[in-house]
């Protein structure tokens, strides 16, 4: 095969020094690719990002399509969101689904968030609204973990407590959705009424009365069932 060297290439005179071999060029390309790869992996610098950056900074970077910021926000809030939702739904699979949906909604609407410093409450609100819709649609979604229910080597005290725990879960599952949500956040996530009110954008007095009523309902039902 015959080839003709590209005519437009810079004319090289006979005295010009020999051009550098192409390997250098390949090396440069490889280096750039490696830098991009390192950048996209994100994980390495995560500790620094979490420690140094505020939510506001992470959000600004996320909106600039910075992948590290996405990973940073996820890492910072994924556990909070998942465990809070699981505390309300008492179901692992449902909690996973709602957490995923909540993050997707939040990231899609992030550019509309007016106060990025309130990201935490805003994210929790999105997730808890989804969880609320879920328990409104179907109350009986509480899962019963086998390892939780069938202890064989536990003390009598623990066996009684496990049995009581199952009854508590069943009674909570039958409460009105709003009461269920407020009571679960208080009992299992140990949130104060003021915090619940802020996240759910409810009047603190409403939260307190719902909580009081739900707690009374739970304990009196247990007493009526002669469990307590």
């Amino acid at each position: 095969m015959k080839i003709r060297l590209w005519e437009k290439q810079r004319n090289l005179s006979a005295t010009a020094p020999p051009p550098r071999p192409f390997r250098k060029v390949w090396g440069k390309i490889w280096l750039n690719s490696y830098k991009n790869f390192k950048r996209s992996s994100g994980q390495r610098r995560l500790g620094v990002i979490e420690a140094v950056m505020s939510d506001r900074e992470l959000i600004e970077k996320f909106l600039d399509n910075d992948e590290d910021a996405f990973v940073g926000l996820m890492t910072k809030y994924q556990r909070l969101l998942f465990h809070t939702v699981k505390g309300v739904l008492l179901n692992n699979d449902e909690a996973q689904e709602i957490t995923q949906e909540a993050f997707i909604r939040a990231f899609k609407k992030l550019k509309h968030l007016k106060d990025p410093d309130r990201f935490r409450s805003w994210l929790l609100r999105i997730a808890l609204n989804l969880a609320y819709d879920r328990i409104k649609r179907e109350a009986d979604i509480i899962e019963f973990d086998d390892s939780f229910m069938s202890p064989t080597t536990d003390s009598e005290e623990k066996i009684i407590a496990r049995d009581l725990a199952e009854k508590i879960k069943t009674i909570i599952g039958k409460l009105a959705p709003r009461q269920r949500m407020i009571l679960s956040l208080h009992l299992f996530r140990e949130m104060k009424p003021a915090e619940i009110a802020e996240i759910l954008e409810l009047n603190p007095a409403t939260v307190r009365s719902n909580l009081h009523f739900a707690m009374k309902n739970l304990k009196e039902t247990l007493h009526k069932q002669q469990v307590i």
């Binding site: 465990h83 623990k158 496990r162 009581l164 725990a165 508590i168």
Partner: peptide, 15 residues
Amino acid sequence: DTFDFALNLIRDEIH
């Protein structure tokens, strides 16, 4: 005590 213990068991399961 049993009631508080039961709540702790549920918290452990959640977390």
